[in-house]
């Protein structure tokens, strides 16, 4: 039942009433989606990135820079398909990363600090909001998945490290700890006890990446950007998959009184319903 153009009364009520109901529906769905994203995306981040985002002494130039954007472009890409193809709304990625960072701060305050006594200087989360906004804007301005994957996905990967550097740089200054060179982040990790997490469990700066004496971060960022392009396209398709209504043929239909001749066209069912 459509809302009449003039706003005149329908069987459900006046046009103003329907518009009000529509807005209530909007905000209810928005709240549900935000909560859903906070929970699901946060679980995804904890299970896949985990320690690299939990601790300041895991935020290295190789693994953290590569892994974080690649694994966090997933939900934004899938939700961009859903938001864009169905509603032409270009803020899905921003909403995803906003939900994630809010959920992360809730966890950092309640679980890491209040429950496990970790200091905030050790457990602050990274942010990917700048890359997410760019991802949304590229989609809005180009209206094209491929362009968004190439330029938006690349920007998402490339902007991660410089976007977090203003928060991280102070922790990468050198200190002398009992005659060993450490960064401030290393010293924080050494000082504040994670009882069952011995130092050798840290997966940081391993490998034989040659940077001719320079920083490994730019190389990692470009590699991450390349992977983000691929990952974006994969998860866009996953978003598309979840927008489809899938039906399973009823193999018992003949036993339920339906004749063979009544078999409907497969594509008709979802649209007519």
């Amino acid at each position: 039942m459509a809302v009449s153009e003039s706003g005149s009364d329908s069987k459900l009520g006046s046009g103003a009433d329907l518009r009000f109901l529509s807005r209530i529906f909007d905000f209810a769905v928005a709240l549900i989606v935000l909560m859903l994203l906070m929970a699901a995306f946060h679980v995804h981040a904890m299970l896949t990135i985990g320690d690299w985002d939990f601790w300041v002494d895991w935020k290295d130039e190789r693994f953290w820079v590569v892994i974080t954007p690649v694994l966090l472009i997933t939900f934004p890409a899938a939700f961009q398909y859903i938001f864009w193809e169905n509603f032409r709304l270009p803020f899905a990625a921003t909403l995803c990363l906003l939900a994630l960072v809010l959920a992360e701060w809730i966890t950092r305050v309640t679980a890491f600090n209040m429950w496990a006594y970790m200091p905030f200087s050790m457990v602050w989360p990274a942010t990917l909001i700048p890359g997410a906004i760019v991802l949304d804007l590229v989609l809005m301005l180009t209206g094209n998945m491929l362009m968004t994957a190439i330029f938006g996905g690349m920007a998402f990967g490339l902007m991660f490290y410089p976007g977090n550097w203003p928060m991280l740089a102070a922790f990468m200054q050198p200190v002398d700890v009992h005659g060993s060179l450490m960064s401030v982040a290393d010293q924080i990790g050494y000082t504040y006890t994670r009882t069952s997490t011995p130092e050798y469990l840290r997966i940081i700066n391993r490998g034989t990446l040659r940077t001719f004496g320079g920083s490994a971060a730019p190389v990692s960022a470009f590699f991450s950007a390349f992977l983000c392009i691929i990952m974006y396209m994969i998860w866009w398709q996953i978003g598309k998959f979840f927008c489809k209504l899938i039906t399973i043929p009823n193999v018992l239909r003949t036993h339920m009184g339906y004749g063979q001749e009544e078999k409907p066209n497969e594509g008709d069912l979802p649209l007519k319903a």
């Binding site: 290295d60 550097w165 203003p166 740089a169 990468m172 960064s183 700066n205 920083s215």
Partner: peptide, 21 residues
């Protein structure tokens, strides 16, 4: 903002090292 903040931070903290493993 991202580029500007990155450049400013680099100037503010000229001496940084990678995590030591």
């Amino acid at each position: 903002v991202v580029i500007g903040a990155y450049v400013y931070t680099d100037m503010k903290y000229p001496t940084t090292i990678p995590l030591q493993g």
